[in-house]
Design a protein around this nucleic acid. Sequence first.
DNA 1: CCTGTCCCTTTGTCCGACAAAGTTAGGGGC
DNA 2: GCCCCTAACTTTGTCGGACAAAGGGACAGG
Lengths: 255, 255
Amino acid sequence: MPLAPLFRPIDVAPAYQKVADAIEREIVNGRIKPGDPIGTEHDLVRQFGVNRSTIREGIRVLEEGGLISRDSSRRLHACLPRYTKLASRLSRALVLHEVTFRELYEASMTLEVASIEGAVERATDENIAELTDNLARSEAVVGDPAALAECDAEFHVLVAKASQNRVLQLAREPAAQLFYPTTEMIVTGVAEGGPRLVAAHRHLIDAIRRRDREAGVLWTRRHLQDWRRGFEKIASLDRSVEHMYMEHAQAARRR
Amino acid sequence: MPLAPLFRPIDVAPAYQKVADAIEREIVNGRIKPGDPIGTEHDLVRQFGVNRSTIREGIRVLEEGGLISRDSSRRLHACLPRYTKLASRLSRALVLHEVTFRELYEASMTLEVASIEGAVERATDENIAELTDNLARSEAVVGDPAALAECDAEFHVLVAKASQNRVLQLAREPAAQLFYPTTEMIVTGVAEGGPRLVAAHRHLIDAIRRRDREAGVLWTRRHLQDWRRGFEKIASLDRSVEHMYMEHAQAARRR
DNA sequence: CCTGTCCCTTTGTCCGACAAAGTTAGGGGC
DNA sequence: GCCCCTAACTTTGTCGGACAAAGGGACAGG
């Protein structure tokens, strides 16, 4: 028979962790608002009564977590965690877990269809203007796989943004980041890939403008199926996401 | 006319960042596999030729990113980033961006429906056994809102796991973490909430077992609509996610 | 075989220091 | 009076060394 729990586990955390937690609490509680200065390391040394090295370790934790950052003059301030930075970490996790392209494809089918549905319903004129601008730029670089892949990635970010649903925006991001490098490979390897991609985007913008949900869903499906067919010409869907994509994500994160 | 690019931009990053990047590269390249030891801080001091304080700052970065961790004896080793830890970061970001429950609801509707579709198609006997076990435990605590909310969260994690799609599993996690605390509030505030929740789970397991996609989707929708109706009895869907949920996520992260 | 002890390693923390880069204040030129 | 330039001052990034506490391992004794 197990003993009755007489003692709670005591909280034994290193000082740098406690520093990080204390600052994090103030930020998530809203007492420190995004943009507010945190103070210099020396200030924190005085406030917490620990050594500067300890403070600095705590700062690294918060920095990596995206809760604080340093401005141009390297002063600390609280900030709103950027989705893309966090998403790139998730992408990295997906790579390390060796997810397959089939999983990626299936999940993206769901997420992108949901995005377009939201966009069709709620896109603003400004959203549509951004998408139209993106389309124009895509048409200009239809012969340049790398640039076109970048435009494609941006297009789908803009569609998600137009859905006005930030949860969805965030949920699709990790998968989208893994998608992006393959798009370049596909457009390079499949001659008709570029024009088909741009045509799909044109239909999608049209669907959003006309608030035509059916058309939006249809063209999103086609767009993704095109990607899949292109992909199958150069690799197998059941292959795991290679480390090469990691490099992409890393480079993007540092930009 | 711009000059021909004679020089590459030089990489000016703090040493601790370079240390972190170097180790990260080795891990994502697979030269260091999950579980492999990284070596002691002193080893790294020797290898990188920088001060231990610098090494330690780099280690904090990697630790926070989930790429390395310390075992029971505090020795460093590479590890597979845990979805839930990263997802809690995203949840926190969503809170700080003040997303509304409407966004949460809409995104979850998409993600949970996709999960059940995958589960209906591909759940293994083991998945079903886990779900059945969860159901039994839920029935035992139907009168305890906190315990029931925890079971509910686990149930949906198990459904996502049964979908055999890790991308989906990860995509739904941030939203699900924000869902969880509200479930407790709803079950507390709405008398018939608990039994309805358990009944829905029973139907979902049944649908998975019979490979009945329609039923699975139907009951997932009902389940979420129940949540929504319950939620509207205690708050407005357009309210932003409050900081209170943050505390939940924080506590969960530290567990 | 279990246990207590000693020793070595490793981590967490601290102190003090210095160069480089950014900031601020004051002085000189117009 | 206003603007530019330079000289302090501040802050960050890094370094060297130091020490207590906790873990792990070897080893003797029950």
